[in-house]
């Protein structure tokens, strides 16, 4: 039996976080490396509103990728609570977790992770296929995404026939084809030259202006400083969390 006073405090808390898209409370993530326990995330509290543009920076091993994976439901917390859209997703069964990933979250990876034997268009269509969208509904969506990313003449090429920048644009098209609320990018420019990296960041910022919440994990201070909210992580903790006005001229 839950005591009545506790219920009321819960309700107060709920009303406070009503606007949060992502709400992390006292999140811990421990890994066992041999005999030793490594605290990849150490008591993280983080609240993210819909439409934010966030960069997560920090040295290697500071836990920024782990935090991103946890937000993307690829990893789960050892301790703590994760509310996504006010729904507790801390310990969701596999099927529902997969459904959440499919519908609300898009990933962009440093290594692109395109399937080499599929063409650009087929790679972009993959989330639709996995979600069970009918072929005749898929085609217009894929065509539009190909156009938006400026890949029209590259749609039927396989990834090894594309440049790094083109590959990452295919990956972004794939990440956004399901129209997710959240776009998670883990070092999206890490494998790209300066110019292509700049293109990719421009695309991500444009998506953010369309209302998608964008979270970028990066080493690159130049990229990190473009975000309106900059989170610094050290040793699994959030060291600083600043709201800034964007310095980029648009």
């Amino acid at each position: 039996m839950v005591p009545v006073p506790l219920l009321t405090t819960n309700m107060i808390e709920l009303s406070m976080i009503e606007l949060s898209l992502i709400e992390l409370k006292n999140i811990h993530r421990n890994f066992l490396v041999g005999e030793q326990t490594v605290h990849a995330l150490d008591d993280i509290n983080l609240s993210i509103q819909a439409g934010e543009y966030i960069s997560i920076m920090g040295p290697s091993g500071s836990g920024k990728s782990t935090l991103l994976n946890l937000i993307g439901l690829l990893d789960s917390a050892t301790k703590g609570t994760y509310l996504l859209n006010q729904q507790d997703v801390t310990a969701l069964p596999d099927g529902q977790q997969a459904a959440k990933r499919s519908k609300t979250i898009g990933f962009v990876f440093q290594a692109f992770h395109l399937i080499p034997r599929l063409t650009a268009a087929e790679n972009i269509a993959l989330p639709l296929i996995l979600a069970g969208t009918e072929p005749d509904q898929r085609q217009p969506l894929v065509n539009k995404a190909v156009m938006d990313m400026g890949l029209s003449d590259r749609a039927h090429h396989t990834p090894d026939q594309l440049s790094g920048g083109q590959r990452q644009r295919v990956a972004i098209a794939r990440a956004t084809i399901m129209q997710p609320n959240i776009l998670l990018a883990d070092e999206p420019t890490g494998n790209l030259d300066q110019k292509s990296g700049q293109d990719v960041i421009n695309i991500l910022e444009q998506l953010n202006r369309q209302g998608i919440t964008v979270i970028i994990v990066t080493h690159d201070a130049n990229i990190g400083q473009r975000a309106t909210r900059q989170i610094q992580m050290v040793d699994g903790r959030i060291e600083s969390d600043q709201q800034c006005s964007q310095i980029s001229s648009r």
Partner: peptide
Amino acid sequence: TAEIGLLKALGAPQRL
């Protein structure tokens, strides 16, 4: 493995 990891990230449940 990378491909399977990707499919999971894109929302493929275990049974798929």
